[in-house]
Design a protein around this nucleic acid. Structure first.
Lengths: 205, 205, 205, 205
DNA sequence: CATGAATGAGAATTCATTCAT
DNA sequence: TATGAATGAATTCTCATTCAT
């Protein structure tokens, strides 16, 4: 692996992700992709038959990547650990938070396209959303069986927790600096705490 | 005022919302808007200088509409009621859920544009996001003062609850029928319950 | 003749002359003509089949008007007077200058159109240019016969004098105030003087 | 540098000058420019952002070109010569006549635009009209100082002579062949003669 | 393989003209 | 007769894609 070992195809993909996430697919011109990638416009079409193929390549790679990261890896973590559930949850969510944040550009691209393209939405739902929920539900069920968690509808629990984390990510991505939380680690910890213990005052119980 | 009193401008706006939300702004042709609105293509430009102006009009109207619905109205509901907090929350979230679901097309349009357009994002954050959070935080603080809620960071609590509801909405909008929850009312009730009581087994306490 | 005795057709013509001379025929929209004339856009087409017909009407009227003013009237003045030639010339040119200046808008319109429209140019040449030259030449010939003027090619003399006056008009119309001559009467008098006596120093003779 | 070294941009400019001068800017379609230039319509917009930019490019280039030809070059001719004034004038005017006639298309384009566009008119006045007058006045003043010319208002003299030449050009450009002068050289010579000696019969003096 | 000028199909936009009221 | 909203043909302009070098 030499230093400049980035292929022309990768240059195109990277430039495209950056521009698509900034301005959207349709508003990004192939001339801009070329300039951003440091290549000639015509060169793009030696690697991708059409502009749409670039998008599809990004989407396909992203779904593969995230389906692996979200689905395969956590399974092992969850099943083979002795830590308390609160810790497991914190680790898991922090890991997810980091991964989503690090790859936010590509997620924005895929997510935006999913809004209007049935096919992409279906793949996203099938390969990531459903499986992620299933793993979460599995984890929750184990807790229920161990008597750690109450016997609530797992889907509802998992979906809600995931929503809380997504909202934290949205806040960090879209709010101006002076409006967003500073200590993300602590935010994640608080979210887990709230989920586990609820917000009701102890006096009430 | 005759029976079919829908102005040409409204026809254009409605057709545009439908198409923009389905296919996105750029992929929607003005010829399609015209056909969908049942008017000639040229007529569009008597009402909107450019295609982009249609989008801007939709966004502006939407922000006005939702800023009123989300910000002004709930304040009264929250401050002048004697119901238990759990009921207030349920009513409020159900109301929000209904409103978002009913106007999902327009929200999709505005949301999608906000992803790539700084200006729109700023307006959305300023007029809706921040204010909605503030009202939620106000409500939570009152509960804390009354000793009903624990003294947790209000922003975190509100954001998490809002995220949970948004995820329910996303599920309902994007998952295929066989994968999504059937009884939304009950889902909302569960979400409130989880938030208030947490998921920890009673035995643990 | 009541005060507001200006017909709708005249309103359209006047508004059109003003706008055509300011912005050109093609750049003037019928909507602007209507607004300027204080009528509805559709009304224009009750009086003129097409926008081009307005222009043609203006051009035709203008050619009629100027052909009368330039050709018929001066003939009499020239033939039935006892004043010295220098005075006749001054009177004639001052009269022409005033008429052109007063009607400059309409002349600008007709002139501009003549540049690109063969038909209009032909009419202008036939009905005004040639006849004006002929009258001038006739006047000059009389002077030659009387021994007042040298026997020079009449066309050259008349054309040159007319050019000098036109250039004065151009200066007055197009130069900024601080660059143009103040005393037009005197300018005309000077032009006549130069033509009659030349610019050569007397010492030289 | 190959034989047919005319750039695409030049093709567009040349085709545009030809068409604009024939039919006017607004009546010339970009499709016609493309056909006339032997290129695809879209190619035009690789070189000029808008159709108007073609016009502006022509105007700018023309003003530069003529300001150089009219202002810089003649100064030297006038100041460094020993010929009699009549000869200098004839040479100068013949030179101007040739240049204007050769570039009449482009002058027609710029002139027409100047009639309706303040900005262009200002540039034309500032860079060409005023300077040309100044040079003429300088030349005349020298003659006055040498005692060759009478002490008349230089502006009036120069403007009038320039007007006479312009009218000759107009005649040549716009009158039908059978109506216009045949021997232009002689016409120019006559104009100079008339200016220098006037039209008054010698007997009168 | 890379280039970038040229292409042309397709989209947005303009505006004179029509016509129901 | 006057109106002005609606029309749609005509035009400008965009940009992904091609292809000769």
């Amino acid at each position: 692996m030499k230093k400049d070992d980035i292929t022309t195809e990768e240059k195109i993909i990277n430039a495209s992700i950056e521009l698509f996430s900034e301005k959207g697919f349709d508003s990004t011109k192939t001339s801009e992709i070329a300039k951003n990638a440091g290549i000639a416009e015509g060169t793009i079409f030696r690697y991708f038959k059409t502009k749409k193929d670039i998008l599809m390549s990004i989407v396909t790679k992203a779904i593969q990547f995230f389906s692996e990261k979200f689905v395969v890896i956590p399974l092992n973590k969850i099943l083979h650990t002795e830590k308390p559930e609160e810790e497991i949850l914190f680790d898991l969510l922090k890991d997810r938070y980091g991964m989503i944040t690090k790859n936010f550009s590509i997620i924005k691209v895929v997510g935006t396209e999913a809004l209007t393209k049935e096919k992409i939405r279906e793949k996203l739902v099938e390969h990531i959303a459903i499986k992620t929920l299933e793993i979460g539900e599995e984890f929750y069920q184990q807790g229920v069986e161990k008597g750690i968690f109450r016997d609530l509808p797992p889907r509802t629990v998992v979906r809600s927790l995931f929503g809380s984390i997504m909202m934290l990510i949205a806040e960090q991505q879209f709010l101006p600096d002076d409006k967003k939380s500073k200590d993300v680690d602590n935010e994640i910890r608080m979210i887990v705490e709230i989920f586990i213990n609820g917000i009701k005052s102890r006096k009430e119980q």
